[in-house]
Design a binder for these strands. Structure first.
Lengths: 146, 146
DNA sequence: GCCTTCTTTAGAATTATTCTAATTATCGCT
DNA sequence: AGCGATAATTAGAATAATTCTAAAGAAGGC
């Protein structure tokens, strides 16, 4: 029987993006990324750790931190910080804002037109050159389709 | 000689705003607030502590945290969080955004037209009701007037 | 197959913040 | 002025989030 390469359950882009930065694709990195893609609720490092552990019981929290940091470096994931509290991770790379529900504590992605981000940057006084804009809303979401 | 009330060096609003919330005006609260108003570089609690200590050597870090939290509760100060790292404090109450200079690490206030904030909120999908928007730019500021 | 480099790991260390219990200050009342 | 109730501050311990360190484990190139 010939050796079979198991089909990759993880997005094709990952290995490539990592390689672009001279980094290797590892089971840990793949799984952490997969977990982020699967449940997009902006988990903390601890939460990612909990979700990853059943699949890869030997993994350590430090590794989860390492992997997350690596994914951020490779532009596969964004780190977001709301008020005090742990950093959260978001695999949505399209330009979008975050809506932080003050009641449930949940964070929702809100797609906004690219033009809005451009417009915002254009409002900056001369001398300021922004390469990123972050927008965070805070309030109540009475989800119609709940 | 009659007892003289020393002229308050701190903004008149403070005592009033505190009273509105059933809180007292204390030397610690006044000084912490004054320090924030004097150097508006978005200091951390530790930095505020360092600035306050020469004036009030007995003050404790816990008190600085308490005072800052109190000021935030009274809507005299805003707490801002950029990426990981300690919370920073900002006494600018006008609607504004923050520009985080990636080179120097400094944070600048950027006044934006109120209309922009309104417009942003109106872009939210139905069901989302925001009572606050935070905008953070990230990039390089080649300050013309430096 | 060996050497180098990259990665992961466990645990210690660091940093930021909050909590706790005791002390001190202030306010209103008499 | 004196007293009791409440509010605020304090020092230090406790917690939470993250980073660091040093050692062990994997992978790739020759």
């Amino acid at each position: 029987m010939s050796t079979l390469t198991p089909p990759p359950r993880h997005p094709a882009g990952l290995a490539q993006k990592l390689a672009d930065s001279g980094l290797r694709s590892t089971p840990q990195r793949e799984l952490v990324y997969e977990v982020l893609l699967t449940k997009r609720d902006h988990p903390t490092a601890d939460e990612v750790f909990a979700r990853v552990k059943p699949e890869l019981p030997g993994i350590s929290l430090a590794t989860v931190y390492n992997c997350l940091e690596t994914l951020v470096q490779c532009d596969l994931v964004r780190a977001v910080n709301f008020e005090r509290g742990p950093t959260r991770y978001c695999p949505n790379l399209r330009p979008h804002a975050h809506f932080h529900d003050e009641v449930t504590g949940q964070t929702h992605d809100v797609d906004l037109p690219e033009t809005l981000f451009t417009k915002l940057k254009s409002e900056l006084p001369p001398g300021f050159d922004a390469n990123a804009v972050e927008i965070t809303f805070r309030g109540k979401a009475k989800s119609c389709a709940n």
